[in-house]
Computed example of a mutant assay.
Amino acid sequence: MSLLRAGIVGCGAIFPMHAASVAASGAARLVAVCDPDANKLESASQLYGCAGYDRLEEMLERERLDVLHLCTPHYLHPPQAILAAGCGIHVLTEKPMCIASADGEAMIEACRRHGVQLGVIFQNRYNPGARLIREALDDGSLGAIRGARCSVLWSRSDEYYAESGWRGTWSKEGGGVLINQSIHTLDLMRWFMDAEVSRVEAQLANRRHPGIEVEDTAEGLIAFDNGVNALFYVTTAYSHDAPVEIELHGEKGTAKLTADQAVVTYQDGTVISRDRLPQDAMDYGGGAKSYWGVSHFKQIQDFYRSVSRGEAPVIDGREALKTSRMIEAIYRAGRTREPVLL
């Protein structure tokens, strides 16, 4: 079987996770990259020995791609996905798939109309700890979930926001800590619930970053239609990046995810845990953070398998849009200070 021809648009911080995964996949080869920044483009194209373009339209026209990876700012995901779909190219986009859910729906429809797959990166669902909790929920050993909570207490400097022309803005990032740093954790909690969101309540604040338009702190409640109330507190105004936490309180025990490690404690005293193995690592190069693990690689491999088989990926546009709609509702609740019903 011939290798899929892959391209990547966006050669910034998340680029190495995708480029190295393509190179190691055994299913695709990176034939082209695109970025308007000449220095980033030259570095990426030389590192991977592929063609470089400063315009996406030109890359799509000339390279006959099978798959396009979107590693660009949030606001560009919908138009770039729709453009690629129109060229008959499968799309794998970084989170969030969109800022506004209407744009996400347009992405899904464009990919459906042109017969291509749309995948969205939520790689933490592939982490061993997250999988253990999902298994305990699926086999019923925790019983019905009575409550849930999650927290993301991280630190982002003023320089982090200032070095980019899109972070910290409503129009380009679409928000702050909710849509960027904590979306993975909120997605995991929604995935664990395996239920539809029925109501959200929220408060938004900017505690420590006067130079940005958006929130650096948010807290609230997400009510699911199975009767579970989930609480969240997220911020980039903390002193350091503390381990992410998710806790589920079940009839027969509790499940707690702390960073990558999951611990399931049953009422009969049984304790089961799972963590990322030391050997479960990958050198992404390019300054990628080691704690990101191998789950990008796992999801990208999974996406390529789906494309090769003509099947929808596990985390497709419709699945990812549920999380985007939840985030959108949290913002609406925070702005209006009223509960939002879905």
Rank of each mutant, 00 (worst) to 15 (best):
Cys87Glu: 12
Ala102Ile: 13
Thr93Pro: 04
Leu341Arg: 13
Arg149His: 15
Tyr291Ile: 04
Ala312Val: 09
Ser151Lys: 04
Gly49Gln: 11
Gly334Gln: 02
Leu56Thr: 04
Leu221Trp: 04
Lys298Leu: 14
Arg55Val: 08
Ile108Gln: 11
Pro79Val: 05
Thr185Ala: 09
Arg305Lys: 13
Phe232Asn: 02
Asp283Phe: 10
Asn180Val: 02
Ser43Pro: 02
Ile133Gly: 00
Ala24Lys: 13
Thr72Gly: 04
Tyr284Gly: 04
Leu118Ala: 13
Gly115Thr: 10
Glu338Gly: 08
Ile89Asn: 06
Ala27Thr: 07
Ala148Pro: 00
Ala255Met: 06
Tyr48Gly: 05
Gly165Met: 10
Asp158Thr: 10
Arg318Lys: 14
Ala19Glu: 04
Ser155Arg: 03
Thr336Asn: 08
His114Gly: 07
Ala136Asn: 07
Gly168Pro: 03
Arg55Glu: 14
Asp138Ser: 11
Ala136Met: 10
Ala162Val: 10
Pro96Cys: 12
Asp187Ser: 14
Arg208Lys: 12
Gly12Pro: 01
Leu47Phe: 02
Ala144Gly: 11
Arg5Gly: 10
Ile315His: 05
Ala259His: 10
Ala51Asp: 15
Glu61Leu: 09
Val264Pro: 02
Cys50Phe: 00
Cys71Thr: 13
Leu41Phe: 03
His209Val: 05
Gly175Pro: 00
Ser182His: 02
Gln299Phe: 00
Arg113Trp: 09
Ile246Thr: 11
Leu257Trp: 02
Leu41Tyr: 07
Pro128Arg: 11
Ala44Gln: 09
Tyr160Asn: 07
Val152Phe: 01
Asp268Ile: 12
Ser157Gln: 09
Thr265Phe: 04
Ile8Asp: 00
Ser151Gln: 09
Ser164Arg: 14
Ser151Tyr: 01
Gln261Arg: 14
Gly286Val: 08
Glu213Trp: 09
Gly115Arg: 10
Asn124Gly: 08
His90Gln: 14
Ala312Thr: 14
Tyr75Phe: 15
Leu4Lys: 13
Ala333Glu: 04
Gly119Phe: 08
Trp191Ala: 15
Trp166Gln: 01
Asn226Cys: 11
Gln80Tyr: 15
His18Ala: 13
Val31Gln: 08
Gly334Ala: 02
Trp154His: 04
Ser101Asn: 00
Leu186Tyr: 03
Arg337Ala: 15
Ala333Met: 05
Glu159Ile: 02
Thr235Glu: 01
Ala28Met: 05
Glu247Ser: 12
Leu83His: 12
Met107Thr: 02
Pro243Lys: 00
Glu247Tyr: 02
Arg309His: 12
Thr93Tyr: 05
